[in-house]
Design a protein around this nucleic acid. Sequence first.
DNA 1: ATTGGCACTCGGAACGGCGGAGTGCCAGCC
DNA 2: GGCTGGCACTCCGCCGTTCCGAGTGCCAAT
Lengths: 339, 339
Amino acid sequence: MIEDRKLAVLRAIVEDFVSTNEPVGSKSLVERHQLGVSPATIRNDMAALEDEGYITQPHTSAGRVPTDKGYRLFVDRLSSVKPLSPAERKAIESFLSGATDLDDVVRRTVRLLAQLTHQVAVVQYPSLSRSSVRHVELVLISATRVLVVLITDTGRVEQRQVDVPTLLADDDIAILRNRFNERIAGHHLAEAPALLADLPGAVEPRLQPNATAILAAVLETLVERTEERVVLAGTANLARGGALDFPDTIRPVLEALEEHVVLLRLFGEVTDAHSVRVSIGGENPHEGLQTASIVTSGYGVATPLAGLGVLGPTRMDYPGAMGAVRAVARYVGHILAES
Amino acid sequence: MIEDRKLAVLRAIVEDFVSTNEPVGSKSLVERHQLGVSPATIRNDMAALEDEGYITQPHTSAGRVPTDKGYRLFVDRLSSVKPLSPAERKAIESFLSGATDLDDVVRRTVRLLAQLTHQVAVVQYPSLSRSSVRHVELVLISATRVLVVLITDTGRVEQRQVDVPTLLADDDIAILRNRFNERIAGHHLAEAPALLADLPGAVEPRLQPNATAILAAVLETLVERTEERVVLAGTANLARGGALDFPDTIRPVLEALEEHVVLLRLFGEVTDAHSVRVSIGGENPHEGLQTASIVTSGYGVATPLAGLGVLGPTRMDYPGAMGAVRAVARYVGHILAES
DNA sequence: ATTGGCACTCGGAACGGCGGAGTGCCAGCC
DNA sequence: GGCTGGCACTCCGCCGTTCCGAGTGCCAAT
C-alpha cells in the first residue's frame, strides 16, 4: 500500500533525475507524475526513502538524487527492459548485416551500441578459450622459419612465427600440418594441449625437434593468447554531461577504460549467461569506476562466447541501455552463428 | 640584434607557459631567465611580438600566451628536438623488445608513446598497400567454402571467407594455392591485381569458376582492406590539464579521435618522409582539433610504412614530444626490419 | 494516513570593494 | 638609439555581504 507508493516515488525520482540531471523536489514530482497526493505526502515518503538509503540530498534543502542503492532497486524491481523501437531494430539490422568478417562485425557492433545508447560501448572479441579449432595452417617462410596460423570456428585468426632448429622442406611442413589438424581440428581449444602432448613422439625422429618447436608455438597461441581483446567506441559520450556526471573529471574513467584487463574482469563475471546484467557505481570493483555504471550481456550462439556492454554515469537510462544491449547481443549471436 | 632578443623572449614565453600553464608576464620572465635586461625592455619586445601575432593576452593586463603562430615559430626556429635521456632510451628498448608479433609491437608502441609524452598516442598499422605479399594461404573449410589468408612481409595477416560455386578437393586447393603464390608472393601489393588478372584463364577449365571466385576475394582483401587501422592510447591524458587546456570540453577532441579517418588523413600527409612533423592548432584541418597539436613521423624500414605520433593541447612540450616520436619511430622501424 | 501551513536552511546569483599582477607610456640616462 | 625606472591605469579574481527561491521538516488539523 504505502510501500507501493514509495516505490512509485523512487521510480519517478530516478526517471526525472535521469532526464533532467537535477535534484528533484517534491513539488515538481507531483507536477510531472500523476501520483494523486500532495507534495507534503511525497515529502514523507522521500524522508523514508532517504532513511532507507535509496536517495540522498546533495545538501540540505535541495532535491533528492538516487543513490547507488536506489538505482539498484530501480533496476531490479521498478523497471523493465525497454524494447527497441522498430526504427532502432531496423538500424541494428542494416548496420550489422553488411559485415564481412569478424573484425568488421566487432567494429560495427561497438559503434552501433555507442550510437544507440549514447554511452561508451565495449565489445569483447569472441574468447579464444571457448571456441574450437577450425584449422591450423603452417606456412614455410624460410627454411628455418614457420608461420603458425590458428583459425577458430568463430572466424578469429591468430598467428605467430617460430624458428625451427633444422631445415624444413615443403613436404615436411605438409606432414606436420596434417598431424596437427588430425588431432585438434574441430576440438575445443581447451582440449588441444592434451591432444597434442604426444605429437612430437609420433613423427619420424628427423622431424621431432621441429615438431617440438612448432608445438610450443601452437600452444602459446592457444594458451597465452587466451588473453582477450576488447574494442571501445563512444568515449566522447563521457564528456556529454560536462562536469555534471562525473564528480571532478572523467580522467579516472578514461584510465579504467584503457586498462582492458579491468574491462575483461567485468565481462568475466558476466559472460556465463546471456542475460543482461547491471553493475552500478560503488558495486563496481574498480576504483576509477565508482561513479560509473555498466550494462553487460554475454553473447554468442549457444554457450556465450564473450561479453559486450555499455558504460556510462550512474545517472543512466537503464531500461534503454538494457534494451539496446540485449538486442545487440542477440543479433550479434545470430550473425556469428551464420558465418 | 634586437631581433635575437625578441626571439629569445618568445622562446622563454613558450617554455614558461608550457610548464606553468599560466599567462606569463614580463617580470617573471626576467626572473626565470637570464635575459640581462629589465622588465620594461621585455615589455617593449612583447608588445612587438604581439603586434606581429606571435603572442596574445587573454585580457588586458594579463600575461602573454603564445598563439598558434608563436608555437609555429618556436617549433621551426627556436627549439631543437630533445634527445631522450638514457633512461628513456632504455625504457623504449626494454618495452618494445619483448614483442612477439605485429599486433603486439603496435600495442606496445602506442602505450610507450603515451607514457613517454603524457599525451594521446596514435599508431597506424603498417599500411597494406606499401607492403608486399609474403604468402597466400587457401584453407578449405567445407567443400564449397574457402578461407583466404593473406600474409604480408610486415607480418600483417588479413583473412576473408568466400563461397565457391563448385565442389573443391584438397588437391584443387593446393593447385590454386600454388598458382596464387607463384604469381604474387614477394611482390608489392599494388602490383598484385595486374599479376593475377589472367589467373583464372591459366587453370584447367574445371577450376575456373572457383578460381574466379577466390580471385575476387583475394583482390578484395588486397584492395578494399587497404583501409588502414590506427590504435590509440593515453586518451586519459587529455583530461590532465582539466578545463585549462581545452577551452570548453574535450569532447570534440575525443570525437575526432574516434573518427579514425581523420587521423589517417593526418598521417597521409606526413608518412612520405621519416622526418618529424608538427601540426599546430588552427593549422589542423579538422574542426574538433583546432585547439590541439599533433606531432607525427613516418616509420618503417626503408620507405615509410605508416605513421605514428602524439596528440595533445597546443600547449605542449614540443621538443620532448618530437624527441620521443622520432626515437620511437626509429626503434619501431628497426624492430620491423628484423622480423 | 493525508494535508496545508509555516519556519528554517542553504546554495547560487548579484553586488561592491579591494588587492595585485601586469601593462603602456614617458622622461631620463648611457 | 636603445635601455631603464617610475607611474598611472586596467582589469581579473577574491571575498564578504545580501538576497532570493527552492526545498525541506515538522506540526496541527482533517
